[in-house]
Design a protein around this nucleic acid. Structure first.
Lengths: 252, 252
DNA sequence: CAGTGGTCTAGACCACAGT
DNA sequence: CTGTGGTCTAGACCACTGC
């Protein structure tokens, strides 16, 4: 019969045990890396050494170090040890939010209106964008989001009706397709393209901009189960809107 | 004395054991979620049930499910169970690459030239941007990156010399400060702002653009050890450059 | 060959939230 | 009170790799 083992083996800093042990180990090592004490290329202690330092089992140490690998801070090689990674590619987490919450976060009233809604057989352009067969049908929507009574963002959306047939029954007259799709369709991957353009006459008119104004364009194509579900092109007034991205030391 | 336990307890799909067991469990559950078989709100099997299904210990199941929590796919509540998350905020991983590799990835020759380099006591503007004291010194650099002989991107950089005193000895005449900093200064966090503007006369001249061209601006402020290390403003020609972001189901 | 990490086990105790 | 997840242990076997 197995013996009940005392929980804490104690090293020295025995106070606050709110954070779990593997979390504390992770933070300790992370701290030494970020402070520069352990520079890129430095070999961090072996698992069995940390095991002794923290008075815990190898699984616990392993969990912390495995997490650090996922965060891209260290790299581990068998027989050799664990090394602080050289920062090579940096990634930023760009949070693509729901437009309504985006507007409300600015403390403004949100408005939505559907300017156009067409159901059609996929055109050549549609087929290129969503990788469709010519027999597929799509729903094309042009809508405008507003903030505080002013035009905020133009949405040009294409929905693959073969992937989301229920969308055909929705009018999207008073609520945007984005949130509807999010609540209904499981997502697995998406690609984003971000670029700047000068507003053309049509866009400028719909967004209430002067001719020649700069616009920020975000295009997103969402994939699930091996096919593209939807494509959306969002056009923002360039000087009224700013994308903010937080940094993340993600693995790459 | 502990008994050596047979490694595999086998359920049914016993073939390929290249992927580890916890990885297989993770993929299985992930697959059911992404396929829509387990929709948002669905309660996935308890750990002890999966333990039986896969014929493994609870730790192995727990590892898989803990990973799914970190990926934002499920949520776990004690006494209640584990539930498929409703997708609320979606995040995209925006990869901010080194400009040189960016250019070379396009198959073009990369060029760099330093247009201005000033070392000075922090101005009011500098102090606001990097949160400095008035006694701090900064290095200000204006540089141009080119691709295939054409101007590609303008870099306006500010380096906090209190954080990186070694930078004062660098001329940055023939190599960009970005890669130099990356190899030298540990990073912990950064903020990005992305927006579109119309090129002013000066910028248009330096980038070889027509008046009124749209530009994509990326500003990045890098933090380490509680202070800002550097700030950089990159100005790209809007229609020649496109930011690409991959999707990531990161926790939020 | 020997040492490292990768993975797994069969238990255990605890915190917490429903009932 | 009971059942769930959160964490941890003291082992174990294996794959890989540098010597």
């Amino acid at each position: 019969m197995a013996v009940s083992v005392p929980k804490q083996a104690e090293s020295e800093t025995t106070t606050d045990r709110r954070p779990s042990l593997h979390e504390r180990i992770l933070k300790d090592v992370e701290g030494r890396i970020l402070s520069g004490e352990w520079p890129p290329g430095h070999r961090i202690p072996f698992e069995h050494e940390l095991t002794l330092q923290y008075g815990c089992s190898r699984m616990t140490v392993n969990k912390a170090l495995t997490d650090l690998v996922k965060r891209g801070l260290i790299e581990r090689r068998r027989k050799s040890g664990s090394y602080v990674m050289y920062p090579h590619t940096r990634s930023a987490v760009l949070e693509i939010r729901d437009i309504k919450s985006e507007v409300e976060a600015l403390g403004l009233d949100y408005g939505y209106e559907c300017l156009m809604r067409t159901q059609r057989k996929a055109t050549v352009s549609d087929r290129l964008i969503l990788e469709l067969r010519s027999t597929d049908e799509v729903l094309a929507i042009l809508a405008r989001h507003s903030a505080g009574g002013q035009p905020f963002c133009l949405e040009e959306r294409l929905i693959n009706l073969s992937a989301v047939p229920e969308a055909a029954a929705e009018s999207f007259a008073t609520s945007a397709p984005g949130p509807w799709l999010i609540g209904r369709v499981p997502w697995s991957a998406a690609e984003h393209k971000i670029r700047a353009v000068v507003a053309d006459k049509h866009t400028a008119g719909l967004l209430g901009l002067g001719l020649g104004a700069a616009c920020l364009i975000i295009e997103r194509r969402t994939r699930n189960n091996g096919r593209y579900v939807t494509h959306v092109k969002l056009t923002y007034s360039g000087d009224r809107h700013e994308l903010v991205a937080e940094f993340a030391p993600t693995r790459s």
